[in-house]
Design a protein around this nucleic acid. Structure first.
Lengths: 146, 146
DNA sequence: CTTGAACCTATAGTTGCTAGAGACACTAGG
DNA sequence: CCTAGTGTCTCTAGCAACTATAGGTTCAAG
């Protein structure tokens, strides 16, 4: 049995975050010691590592909740898990495309700032004029960059 | 003079967001009509477009606050603006690198899910085992991961 | 003149944590 | 056995950057 500190260290998750995951029901309520301290099994560590890894991959806690509930019923088709991962992949690809465009624009901005005065600064100028922008900045559903 | 709705529409910013920007001091307090409704000049529209564009580029509101205060004093060196833009570029490049790694891993996950049962699902499996992960997940600041 | 859209304020909710206060529990050394 | 120093407990509040809701007012069109 692990205390919350060891658990967090082994999973790479901070202690308050573990308690937070319990609070929102992503982790089950932990068993307690005689002195009311949380105790975790190896299984709990695996579950937490799963969460940690999925977070690293950019899954939302909601998606992770779904994946966890799927993995709790291992006899069903994995189509649902696949769908979640595919959606996540699409998300990542779109973020990637946007970021590459942004990188190009930022590079243009930075290159053109040659130590002049602000009045001539491309950084300010480019930011002030959307029409100079090569990127497509339409936001179909009011969503922003993560 | 524009009402808040027209302003928002022209800048591509939602009305509550405009009010929020005023509240946190990113936009100056707007003039009001006889009936207490906000009225905006062309200049205010430009300022808002600047903010919108910078947000699209991933600048934080704090960075934007700095850029705006710079652009209010156009006689100074643009070194500061350049520094902000360069920091932003570095941010974007690092996010880009991470996202590309994530994309590779997600693709691996998705490809390997061939319509089997969850028990064999790579999506779940890969998420459960950090060691299968190609990505570098080290945490630079004194975090001990076993 | 009336309807309905757009506006107003104020407050609370969102996501995914993080930080603080003040109190209790456990462990190692003397 | 005592004490010091961690680690843990609960609870509350805060962060970014909005978004949503409630309940009211103003404005422009028909």
């Amino acid at each position: 049995m692990l205390t919350i500190g060891k658990l967090g260290a082994q999973a790479g998750v901070k202690v308050p975050t573990v308690r937070y995951y319990e609070q929102i029901g992503l982790l089950p309520k932990a068993d307690r010691s005689a002195g009311n301290q949380r105790l975790y099994s190896r299984k709990a560590l695996e579950r937490l590592a799963f969460i940690r890894h999925a977070r690293d991959l950019g899954f939302t806690l909601e998606a992770i909740r779904d994946l966890l509930s799927l993995s709790d019923r291992p006899d069903q088709s994995c189509a649902a898990a696949d769908a979640i991962a595919r959606a996540q992949l699409a998300e990542v690809e779109s973020r990637l495309a946007r970021l590459m465009a942004l990188k190009a624009e930022l590079e243009r901005m930075v290159v053109q700032c040659a130590g002049g005065r602000i009045a001539d600064c491309r950084v300010i100028e480019v930011l002030g004029d959307h029409s100079l922008c090569a990127t497509d900045h339409r936001h179909p559903e009011g969503e922003h960059i993560a």
